[in-house]
Amino acid sequence: MKVIRPKTFTAARAWGALDIANLNGTTVRLHWTDQPYRWHVNDGEEVFAVLDGTVDMHYREAGEEHIAVLETGDVFFANVGCEHVAHPRGEARILVIEREGSV
């Protein structure tokens, strides 16, 4: 049994994570960041839920870049092959659910 309070979680570096669970090869991790990640494509599907803060999620469709503004409580689902990068506006805490070992 675990109780996690995302608002109090910080990490020593941007995109540092607290491993919450591994569900038969699917990881559930809480990330803290104040810096953008990098453009990437996951090797599986990804669920990205903003628990605290605001994140500009940049993604490409048909070679065209789009930006979705994600507020606290918003969820971004990245299909297989979805190229994307998260840019937090200040500090953000994000719950990420994805295949173990994914980028």
Rank of each mutant, 00 (worst) to 15 (best):
D34G: 11
T10L: 11
G16Q: 01
T33A: 03
T8N: 12
P36C: 05
G53I: 02
R5A: 09
G63L: 12
T33R: 00
V50E: 01
G63N: 10
A14I: 06
D19M: 08
T26W: 06
L23M: 12
R38Q: 11
L18H: 05
R29V: 04
E64C: 07
T33C: 05
I20G: 00
H66R: 13
K7T: 14
T54Q: 11
T10A: 08
V41W: 00
T54L: 10
A21D: 15
V28I: 14
D34L: 07
L70Y: 01
E64L: 13
T27D: 08
I4A: 06
H66L: 12
R60F: 14
V47R: 01
G44C: 04
G16S: 04
V75I: 15
D34C: 13
Y37P: 00
I20V: 14
R60M: 15
T26I: 15
E46R: 02
N22Y: 05
A21Y: 09
E61D: 14
G16W: 00
D19P: 06
E61Y: 10
P36Y: 03
A17S: 12
Q35M: 09
Y37S: 08
L70C: 05
H31D: 01
T8P: 00
N22H: 03
D19W: 03
G73R: 06
R13K: 13
T27K: 03
R60C: 07
R38L: 09
A62V: 13
L18K: 09
H31K: 02
R38K: 14
V75K: 07
L30R: 02
H40I: 07
E65L: 14
N42E: 15
A68E: 15
K7S: 15
R5V: 14
K7L: 13
V69E: 09
E65T: 12
T54I: 15
G63K: 11
V69S: 09
D19A: 13
P6D: 05
W39S: 06
V47Y: 05
T10G: 03
E64P: 05
G16K: 00
V55A: 02
Y37V: 03
R5D: 10
T8D: 14
F48G: 00
G73M: 06
Y59C: 05
W32Y: 13
W39Q: 03
Q35Y: 02
E61G: 04
L51V: 06
E46Y: 04
D74N: 13
D34E: 15
G73C: 10
L18T: 05
L30Q: 01
V75Y: 10
N24T: 06
A62L: 15
A14H: 10
L18P: 00
W39G: 08
